[in-house]
Design a protein around this nucleic acid. Structure first.
Lengths: 120, 120
DNA sequence: GAAAGTACATACAAAATTGTATGATACCGA
DNA sequence: TCGGTATCATACAATTTTGTATGTACTTTC
């Protein structure tokens, strides 16, 4: 990354970097998506109910909503088995898998830097 | 990362990974923080008004709130010059700089994967 | 002496996100 | 026929996040 000291101009590099960051942020931000992706990265394939058990505190409403958004952004695949009772599995898509190193780094950074003194 | 196929148990690795991710998410999530950090990473040191100009669309209320949160999480330093008119500069702290490779990867991933068809 | 710049603060309102409660479906076992 | 299971859907409410408008202190510029 380069430095441009001009007071009021933003160069193309910066705009693009920010653009990329903004998109990444838009598909990952929120309270649950990163955790969902992390579990799927770790366990390859999980049923709806398994995800629900792992994501302590999430409501079914949120889980479904976030799974849908992740599908819409093509980060995960939904595999529905037409059985009774129904069985639905989720796994990372190729695009989702391409986030692997970012997720791992975020996990490591978090473990290293997590502090206890967070109020609010 | 390892795989544990047990239906209802989460192993320590997963919990810690998720814990780390959760912390990272908590300090980075939201609409503006990543962009603020990206600009500071790129330009090293920026005044309040320079940040405001770069973050198109942000309100002063949000900018200040987010700068405060980033300070509270020790990701940025605030350098206040006791002059008139006031001059305040912001820069990444060491902890903030340690996010560099994550930020760069997120920018690259976003640039590569950004799609145009995002409604909602 | 009125306006404008700088880095904020504060009250209020709108919008987005998340949570709660309940229902739907479709089958199986008792 | 009643209850149980699994994967959602839907109405509604609470909470959190974000936006708008305005004010402040001080000084330089017009």
């Amino acid at each position: 990354m380069r430095k441009t000291a001009s007071t009021n101009t933003i160069n193309k590099e910066q705009l693009e970097a920010n653009c990329g960051i903004a998109y990444t942020n838009s598909v990952l931000s929120g309270r649950w998506k990163l955790s969902i992706l992390a579990f799927l990265l770790d366990e390859k394939k999980l049923r709806y109910s398994e995800l629900r058990n792992r994501l302590t505190g999430i409501s079914e409403r949120m889980l479904i909503a976030k799974l849908k958004e992740l599908q819409a952004d093509d980060l995960i695949n939904r595999i529905s088995h037409p059985e009774v009772p129904p069985r639905v599995e989720y796994e990372l898509s190729e695009k989702g898998k391409s986030l692997e190193s970012i997720l791992i780094q975020m996990a490591k950074w978090g473990t290293k830097n997590a502090t206890k003194n967070r109020n609010t």
